[in-house]
């Protein structure tokens, strides 16, 4: 969380995160090279680099895609989410090395325009059952480039969180293109069943995790009980101390927090990346987003100075130990006196 532009807001956790990432990649390459040389002793350096970087990018994309649903299913995975953008940019760089070297090796050295060659060379073989896998990879790389180039908070702030998130949903289309690129590419010549098994297991895991997390969330998103615009949240004691209970209004989710013998309600949506505030905690008197640590004061939804983020607030009342929240959001940053409760 910063109040001014900064290339990367380094902190201890980000450094540890990136160090772990680099260590994992170093281990991967240390394993890949001897195994590849054992299986293909005559493999050239170019082929080695193309294949190792391509596989690394593909594996890393699976890790990235698994983090979101894993966090929604179990908050023990939240630390992985914290710096996921660095994973994404790293994955793009790996794919870029793979794509660029392939482009040079297979297209630049010919006597036609290399871009024309990339996009057209394989179409001649359609009649032989060949599926042009290289344009699929190039399209995926272009999407990954757009996402990596706009991954910084600068773009997040300027595009707005919803637009930014919509743009970054392109990763799912890129994933589909990469699946087709790998399936109609390397899987045609690497016919050992382990390759097909690994490939199938990877996408099965990703699809299963996302579908389970999505269905579970959809079930929880059923509109809550309404009485004259007031939503029944539950008994006071049902809201854990310094945490929230999330209810679903007519539009968006509402996070009702209990802290310091008070109850306040704010939008569940963090201004930063639309993270789920209601899954965070009250730390140092501030609601703290579980994704990246953005903070808001419970009584007015404003970030503490000098920060300027604001989220909508909601009126709350307690009748006979039952907490109610008004479904109509107040403008972002509106002060609402917290409801005092018995200790």
């Amino acid at each position: 969380m910063t109040s001014h532009y900064q290339a990367v807001g380094w902190n201890g956790q980000k450094k540890r995160y990136d160090f772990t990432l680099i260590a994992c990649l170093a281990t991967y390459f240390a394993l890949f090279v001897p195994i590849a040389l054992w299986r293909h002793p005559d493999m050239t350096a170019e082929t080695m680099i193309i294949r190792s970087f391509g596989l690394a990018a593909f594996l890393l994309l699976h890790v990235i895609l698994a983090i979101g649903p894993l966090c929604r299913l179990n908050d023990a995975f939240l630390p992985l989410l914290y710096n996921r953008r660095h994973l994404g940019v790293t994955m793009f760089l790996l794919a870029f090395v793979h794509g660029t070297l392939s482009f040079i090796q297979f297209h630049v050295l010919g006597d036609i325009n290399p871009f024309v060659s990339l996009l057209t060379s394989e179409w001649h073989y359609l009649a032989y059952g060949w599926v042009p896998f290289q344009p699929l990879g190039a399209a995926a790389l272009f999407i990954l480039f757009l996402m990596a180039a706009t991954s910084h908070d600068f773009w997040l702030a300027n595009l707005s969180a919803p637009t930014w998130k919509a743009l970054h949903m392109g990763v799912y289309f890129a994933y589909f293109l990469m699946i087709a690129h790998v399936g109609f590419g390397i899987l045609q010549s690497e016919v050992h069943p382990w390759w097909a098994f690994g490939f199938g297991s990877g996408f099965s895991l990703i699809l299963t995790l996302h579908l389970i997390a999505g269905w579970r969330e959809r079930r929880h998103d059923q509109p809550s009980e309404l009485a004259d615009d007031w939503i029944r949240v539950g008994l006071v004691d049902e809201i854990p101390m310094n945490r929230a209970r999330i209810v679903c209004g007519s539009g968006e989710r509402i996070a009702v927090f209990r802290y310091d013998n008070k109850i306040s309600a704010v939008s569940n949506v963090c201004q930063h990346q639309n993270g789920p505030l209601g899954e965070g905690r009250v730390i140092d008197g501030c609601i703290t987003c579980p994704w990246h640590g953005y903070q808001y004061l419970p009584e007015n939804g404003q970030s503490p100075p000098p920060f300027t983020e604001k989220i909508p607030t909601f009126q709350v009342r307690v009748d006979a130990n039952i907490v109610w929240v008004n479904a109509q959001p107040l403008p972002a940053g509106t002060h609402v006196s917290p409801v005092e409760i018995e200790p």
Binding site: Q188, H210, L211, G251, R253
Partner: peptide, 27 residues
Amino acid sequence: MIRTHRRRHLSFFVVLAVLVPVVFTWS
């Protein structure tokens, strides 16, 4: 806002859950 994204997200994956195995089997 976030609910719209989540619904769209689920829709994407329902479609992917059909298309990806088809592409895999075809390949």
